[in-house]
Structures are given as C-alpha cells and as structure tokens.
C-alpha cells in the first residue's frame, strides 16, 4: 500500500478528485433535471435513472471531449510550434519530429528502451505516435458520445414540444451542438495558451510544470 501511494500519488489524487466531482455533478444535475421536470409538469426521475440518461451523459461527455482535444492539440502542436522562454516548448530551431538519434529509436535504442522503439516500420510509427493516437481517439470517441447523447436529449425535447424529429446529421448542424462544443473549446485554448506564455516569466518552486525559480526568462524547454 505504501509503495502504491509513493509511486502513484498524483494519479490517485486526481482520480479521487474526478470521482468526487463526478458524484457532485450527478447529484446537482439530478436535482436540476427534476426541478425542470416540475416546471414542465413532467414526472421526476430516480437518481439511478438520471445516471443512465442522455442528459447526464451529454453533460459529462461534453467536458471530456474538450479536455482531450486540448491535450491532443498540445501534444501535436508542440512538435512544430515554439514559444521562446516557455518550459512547455522546445527551443527555437528544434521544431519537428527530430532525428532517430535524439529520439533513441531503431539502432539508437538503448538496452532499457521500450521494445517497439527498437523496431522499424509500422510498429515504430505507431509507438512513436501512440500518445497522440490515444488522446486523439479519446477526444473523437467522447465527442461522438457527446453528439449522440445530445441528439437523443434534443429529440426528446422536440418530441415533448410537439416539434418534428431531427436526424443525427441534422443535429450535428444544430446551433445547440456547436454552442455546447465551442463554449468548451474556447476556454481550453485560452487556458493552454496562457499556461505556455505565463510560465515564461512566472514560476512555481518545486513544480515540473515550471522552470526553476532562478532560471532566466529566456530559457526555453527547461523544467524544474
């Protein structure tokens, strides 16, 4: 147990925060759902039914997709784009996927390198991009889940108001889908951009997300 905590405290703390926030969201969302039902003279629902509703699923997936888009883009764009002075960026002149020597792949792999780093061809390509592929797949998967739960929710709403159904493609073109998508994206882009820029001049002693307190403002790609 001690080793579990010592080796994984960051992942465990975030997991605990995630579960607590999700439970809080579910309870608050359930109350809000039933308040709305009351106003519209509809029956309230049990908590368990709310957990498996499109309404709750849509609210959860909407936020998941934007977070994973943020990390997908950050991983991808930092390969080529530079912010001088940022610990999040590579140094100017180093943009690109770098040499096999720098990346320790193929014949430059070391004894302790992952097995697929020593290979060539498709498997090396997959492993070389595996973080991006995983985050990108999670982004697209959760965005798809947002779209189908949103469509289901939207259809139920239209049905209740005696309006005609919309098909899935029709929902993808709806103002509601794009408002809920873009309101999340804009905040992620601002937060990531500001993190890259603020960390040029500001510091957090002890954090690997920051440069060392005494590092010069001009130092790029230096983590504390």
């Amino acid at each position: 147990m001690r080793a579990l905590w010592r080796d994984n405290s960051l992942a465990l703390v975030f997991l605990t925060f995630f579960v607590a926030a999700l439970v809080g969201q579910a309870i608050a969302g359930w109350h809000e759902y039933n308040n709305e039902a009351l106003v519209h003279h509809k029956a309230s629902i049990e908590f368990g039914r709310y957990l498996v509703s499109s309404s709750f699923g849509n609210a959860v997936m909407e936020n998941w997709q934007s977070e994973y888009l943020q990390f997908t883009l950050y991983i991808l764009l930092t390969v080529w784009f530079i912010q001088r002075g940022s610990p999040e960026s590579k140094e100017p002149g180093k943009s690109g996927t770098e040499s096999d020597l720098d990346q320790r792949v193929g014949e430059h792999a070391r004894a302790d390198s992952p097995r697929w780093a020593r290979l060539r061809g498709v498997r090396l390509w997959i492993y070389s991009n595996s973080l991006l592929l995983a985050m990108g797949a999670i982004w697209l998967g959760s965005w798809f889940a947002q779209s189908v739960t949103g469509w289901s929710d939207y259809s139920a709403d239209r049905l209740a108001h005696g309006e005609p159904r919309v098909d899935y493609v029709g929902y993808l073109g709806s103002a509601q889908f794009w408002e809920s998508t873009l309101q999340n994206w804009q905040s992620e882009f601002l937060a990531v951009g500001s993190m890259a820029v603020l960390a040029v001049y500001l510091r957090q002693r002890g954090s690997p997300e920051s440069k060392p307190v005494g590092a010069p403002h001009s130092a790029t790609g230096v983590e504390g």
Binding site: V52, W64, A145, W151
Partner: peptide, 30 residues
C-alpha cells in the same frame, strides 16, 4: 512498476468504459 501499470489500466478502463457506455445510451434512447 506493477502498481503503475495497474493505474494505467484503471484510467484506460474508466475512459473507454465511460465513452462506450454513453455512446450506447445516446444511440438507444431515441
């Protein structure tokens, strides 16, 4: 590294499970 791998798998299961579950909810509820 055994516990690190277990945490890695746990995170993946939560993510893949959550997405799969709510895809199914969205696709079956209308």
């Amino acid at each position: 590294m055994g516990s690190v791998r277990a945490i890695f798998v746990l995170y993946l299961l939560i993510i893949v499970g959550g997405i799969t579950f709510y895809c199914a909810v969205g696709l079956t509820h209308h």
